[in-house]
C-alpha cells in the first residue's frame, strides 16, 4: 500500500465512497459525465482500489478526475453502496494538496474557480453575488439578465430583495463580524491553506507562461483544448 493510497484513506469521503467495487459499471451507465466526456468512473474506482501509487499519481495528474459533475447519480445506483463521486472528491482534494492538479488543463481550472467562489464567500458571505457576475463571462444569462443587472438596484427592490441592505433578506449586506467568522473558519480548517496553495502555484505558472495573474485566470477559464469530449 503506497503513500498516496494511505493519504486517500484519511479522507472521510473516500472511506464512505469506496467499500468494495465489483466493477459492474453501473456508475458509468448512469453517469452524465461519461456520456459526454472521455470518462469512465468504473475504471477510476478500479484503479484506486488496486492501491498502486504510480497509477494513483497518474490519475492525480490527469484531466480525467476533473470531468465528474458531482451530481452523485452514481451513489443512488451502485449495488454495493459505493459512491464514485465521493472517491473523485477525495482524489481532487489530494491532487490539489500535492500540487499535481497543475499537471492537467482541467486541474488548472482551480484558479478561476477559487478566485470566484472563495472570493465571493469571503467578501459577500455567499458563493454568488450580483456585483461579481460578469455578463461577458456569462453570455448564456441572456438579454433579460443583462437588462436586470443594469437596473439591479430598482430590479432587486421590485423583487422584494434587500440588496446590500442591513437586516435580514435576500442579498443583504453580510456584517463584517459575520465575514470575519467565515475567514476564521477558513484559517482554522485548512480552507485558507488550500486557497493559498492554488494561488501560489497558479501564479508561478502564470509567470512561466508570461501572463499576468488575471490573464492566466481568463485563459484557464476560457480555454479548452480538443480531446476532452467523446465526439472531439
Amino acid at each position: 500500500m503506497g503513500k498516496l493510497y494511505e493519504r486517500l484513506c484519511k479522507d472521510y469521503r473516500f472511506l464512505e465512497g469506496l467499500k468494495t467495487c465489483i466493477n459492474c459499471g453501473t456508475c458509468t451507465a448512469i453517469c452524465p459525465a461519461a456520456e459526454f466526456y472521455r470518462y469512465d468512473p468504473r475504471k477510476i474506482v478500479d484503479t484506486v482500489q488496486r492501491k498502486d501509487d504510480a497509477e494513483i499519481e497518474a490519475l492525480l495528474k490527469s484531466d480525467t478526475i476533473w470531468y465528474c459533475g458531482e451530481c452523485m447519480s452514481c451513489m443512488t445506483r451502485c449495488p454495493r453502496t459505493n459512491a464514485p463521486g465521493k472517491v473523485i472528491m477525495a482524489l481532487r482534494a489530494l491532487s490539489i494538496e500535492t500540487g499535481l492538479f497543475m499537471e492537467s488543463e482541467r486541474g488548472r481550472q482551480m484558479y478561476p474557480l477559487s478566485k470566484a467562489l472563495v472570493g465571493n464567500i469571503l467578501k459577500y458571505g455567499y458563493c454568488i453575488y450580483p456585483d461579481t457576475f460578469d455578463l461577458e463571462e456569462h453570455p448564456e444569462s441572456g438579454p433579460v439578465w443583462k437588462w436586470f443587472l443594469e437596473h439591479k438596484e430598482s430590479g432587486y427592490a421590485r423583487m422584494g430583495a434587500n440588496y446590500k441592505g442591513k437586516g435580514p433578506g435576500a442579498l443583504r449586506l453580510i456584517a463584517e463580524e459575520d465575514l470575519a467568522e467565515l475567514k476564521a473558519i477558513f484559517d482554522v480548517t485548512g480552507g485558507t491553506r488550500m486557497t493559498e496553495q492554488i494561488e501560489r502555484l497558479s501564479e508561478e505558472k502564470a509567470r512561466e507562461m508570461g501572463m499576468t495573474p488575471e490573464e492566466y485566470r481568463r485563459y484557464t477559464f476560457e480555454h479548452g483544448s480538443e480531446g476532452h469530449f467523446n465526439n472531439d
Binding site: E70, A93, C127, T189
Partner: peptide, 28 residues
Amino acid sequence: NEHHTTCGGIAYHSDTIPQETAMTIIAR
C-alpha cells in the same frame, strides 16, 4: 436571520474548499 451565510455548497462541490471547511461553515 441576518447572521447566517452560504453553506459553502457550491464551493465545496467545485472542490475549492476542504470538507472540514464546509462542515464548519455548516456547524456555524
